[in-house]
Amino acid sequence: MSLALSSAPLREKRAGRWPVAVLAAGATVVAIVAMAAIAPLVAPYDPLDQDLLALNQAPDAAHWLGTDHIGRDVLSRLLVGTRTTLTIGFGGAAVALAIGGGLGLVALALGRLTETLLFGAVDLIRAIPPILLALLLVVALGAGAGPVAIALGLSYAPFFAYVARAAWHREMAQDYVTAARTFGGGPLHVLRLHVLPNLAGALITQAAIVLPRCIVTESVLSFLGLGSSPDAPTWGRMVADASRTIEIAPHAIVAPVIAIVVLTTSLSVIGDDLRRRFDPLRHARATPPEVEP
């Protein structure tokens, strides 16, 4: 065993094992995704159907989680809402990854000038907190799942651009990259062969960290009435709707709140573990610590 390995922190030695918390979180996320997939099949009612004779009903045999202020079945809305919430959350993280990572790498590969320009712009935009930027973009792009996902993606793209830059400069300092460039390898060659494979882990880890934030931000937007369209229930919109009748129908608010907390906590646990495990940048602290919305 080498000296370097034996002096590594305790945390590194345990890196091979999956902690119970992470396994539980993973199982929870898998279960929620599965629920989203089969939601329309198993939902007992149409999530938009209003039963005006059964408003604000407490949970019973007919409505397992009760009904909301216009008589819609909370369980059905929760199940179908899982789908919208997950789609927009994953969509937002994917757009952020594509735009932030993609643009970042292209700018880096093209040289100093484009790097300075792009990251100058990113630094400017970063002064606006993601939630406020997303809100502004939703106002500009309009409501609906697509625009919200794009707004989230643009708001969180800087996170990925910074990761790309840190990884790029780390790779550029490697001997094998110097060798490749000495032998005439152009920036694209180096990017494809050396940077991308080593960058994938860092970007995926970042995606795992950004994903729960996208979901929370989407929920906040929905809660503020700026999320997807009214005919696509999301958890955030359910909280907003139910907050108006909180005195008479508290059950309608507890269900979506628990759903949001369970999903974001599970995703955060996984993201945190992935960062410890795979992120080669963990010692360099490539990105400044960020705050949750």
């Binding site: 909280v239 907050s243 909180i246 608010i253 709140v257 907390v261 974001t264 906590t265 949750e292 919305p293």
Partner: peptide, 20 residues
Amino acid sequence: WSIAFPTFCVGVLGILIVSV
């Protein structure tokens, strides 16, 4: 706590518990 509980969720639950 701050990671797991988005503030608007805590706010809603807070109203529920304290007020209702």
